[in-house]
């Protein structure tokens, strides 16, 4: 019988601890597929954050480091400067990357460190049980915004790709989603590109993955995917916010 589907080699056999319907599993798979396709597992070092994906170090078969909350880009910098030929990626949630670690995120991007950042934006703190994230939408009800996020007192959600696009150094900034099969395919291509950029020495690449949290959103997995389409994507438009490759090609074509 022909094998039509198998687990990427860059994932271990450990059983994922994520909630039913959570999209972390999909993104883990996309990252592992990219590592497999590029044949870089033996020289890849991943950095797991504090958040739901804190135990990602058990799931990826490459060498892994657990970082403190928000500091993954600094840890990645330390690794990459020590082992310039290694492939270093961080896998961070919205609280980790866009709140407590925003300074590390912006500074790492600004230095143009040749690393790959996978940013999971699901507009909520999952691990601690559903508190407001820096990316929670206006009006979104969470444990710490029980009356809905009020911009007057809680500010507006932060758009990371747009923010980082104001910097000169990043090589690649893209926002994708994993709420539908076509979107998952596009997300896989973006993640592959973000890793390939690093292999080719192009510099800082970040993929923001608009994801779901059915448990803390209080929605079924299917409804959660709809919510992404109806609420998240209008505020967080999908697309490429920086692509130095494409820019160079355009320039050359002129």
């Amino acid at each position: 019988m022909a094998v039509v589907f198998e687990k990427p080699k860059a994932l271990t056999d450990a059983v994922l601890h994520y909630c039913p319907g959570c999209t972390h599993g999909i993104v883990h798979r996309l990252v592992a597929e990219a590592i497999d396709k590029l044949g870089i597992e033996g020289r890849t070092i991943g950095i797991a954050p504090v958040g739901c994906s804190v135990m990602a170090y058990d799931y990826f078969a490459c060498d892994m480091i657990e970082a403190s909350h928000g500091r993954a880009p600094a840890v990645a910098t330390g690794v990459k400067r020590s082992l310039p030929d290694s492939i270093v990626f961080t896998y961070q949630g919205d609280g980790d990357l866009a709140s407590i670690g925003l300074c590390e995120t912006v500074s790492c991007a600004c230095r143009g460190e040749n690393v790959t950042v996978i940013f999971i934006n699901n507009a909520i703190y999952g691990m601690t049980g559903g508190q407001m994230a820096p990316t929670s939408l206006v009006g979104q009800v969470t444990q710490t915004s029980p009356y809905g996020r009020d911009p007057a007192t809680q500010g507006m959600p932060i758009r990371i790709c747009e923010l980082l696009a104001s910097l000169d150094a990043p090589a690649y900034l893209a926002r994708v989603a994993v709420n539908s099969v076509p979107n998952v395919r596009k997300a896989g291509q973006a993640i592959l590109k973000a890793f390939r950029n690093q292999v080719e020495g192009k510099g800082f690449s970040l993929v923001e993955v608009v994801s779901t949290c059915p448990t803390n959103w209080g929605l079924t997995p299917e409804k959660a995917c709809q919510w992404v389409a109806e609420k998240m994507i209008p505020f967080y438009p999908l697309g490429v916010y920086r692509d130095k490759d494409a820019d160079a090609a355009k320039e050359a074509a002129k």
Binding site: I45, I47, I65, A67, S68, R71, A74, V75, A76, T77, G78, V79, K80, R81, S82, L83, C103, E104, V106, S107
Partner: peptide
């Protein structure tokens, strides 16, 4: 070698953490 002026003391010690993870003297 690498000299890096970090964005903060917090970032600096975490860069050390990353570097030390690779077995280097950081």
């Amino acid at each position: 070698g690498t000299f890096l002026q970090a964005e903060s003391e917090i970032a600096a010690i975490n860069m050390v953490y990353g570097c030390a993870s690779t077995g280097r003297r950081a």
